[in-house]
Design a protein around this nucleic acid. Structure first.
Lengths: 151, 151
DNA sequence: TGACATTCGTTTCATTTGAAACGATCGTAA
DNA sequence: TTACGATCGTTTCAAATGAAACGAATGTCA
């Protein structure tokens, strides 16, 4: 009557994903933190502002998969440190247009190559095809989650 | 002088890993929470105790990649709820032998097939080879992190 | 126009988190 | 034996987190 023989947590996919991802996140956070003094939420906000500014806070929410409270706090910090600038939206007073400041863009341009370097380091030993396959796999899983969550 | 043209956060591997993994974790946490009333740290402790009991708290730490504070809290909760039992180690008074109780094993055996089912659901559409490749890829990344961190 | 729901962003609240301090126990070496 | 450092597990503390409440602004529809 003994079921589930030899369940192995270490080969359980959600566990493996979680552990590996957390390690990667830590490695990155350490870099950003010590070299640029920014957290991961702040880095994400800077990244999308660098590419898509001007954006509202909600625009950042949509592009970073962070909830609005987190974005609000990240934005508040970046404003306090003068890395982004805000100005009211022309017609919709609820929206706030956010842009990288001079200093913010400087950090953006310093961080990007650094980020790419760390990404390359982590994926060293993987071929282009391996990496493409990983992205494809993550896409498939995400798609499955979309289906599952909307049931 | 404009560097880093078109950096795309959504194809940035650490970001993708983080977002996808968090979604998977949430989906699982919701299941465990509502069906069995246990958190992810608690579930992990139960999982390794189910397979390797008796274990000390430190044994759980080593097999779950959680820090000892987290394990300590999870163990305290499971004890309070009568899902695990503790008895002193024969020779080393610092160690505490932990085992699943009757009720704990019941939950363990109920959760395992459920966990496998959700895993199967998330990986639906992926072939055996795809999943094997994903595990292999995560192994490679972990190995790279091992090297990087020990430098 | 007015009433009502919705959206935006902030703030509050309870919970979770990891780092560090801690007491207790053990191993080791003088 | 007696120090001294290491290990085990708990607890404390400050920071991060997400859910929910909130005020302000906009959209919708009668």
């Amino acid at each position: 009557m003994k079921r589930s023989p030899g369940f192995d947590l270490e080969s359980f996919l959600p566990y493996r994903l979680s552990v590996t991802t957390n390690r990667v996140s830590r490695a990155f956070a350490a870099q950003y933190q010590q070299e640029f003094g920014i957290s991961i939420p702040e880095w994400r906000a800077i990244a999308v502002l660098g590419a898509f500014a001007p954006l509202s806070s909600n625009g950042i929410v949509e592009r970073t998969a962070m909830d609005k409270a987190k974005v609000s706090r990240a934005v508040a910090n970046l404003l306090k440190r003068g890395l982004i600038e805000r100005e009211p939206h022309a017609t919709d007073q609820r929206l706030i247009q956010l842009t990288l400041s001079k200093a913010g863009r400087k950090i953006y341009e310093a961080v990007i190559p650094r980020a790419r370097a760390i990404e390359a380091e982590v994926t060293k030993g993987l071929s282009k095809a391996d990496i493409a396959h990983l992205h494809w796999t993550l896409d498939r899983i995400s798609a499955r989650l979309d289906e599952t969550e909307s049931e």
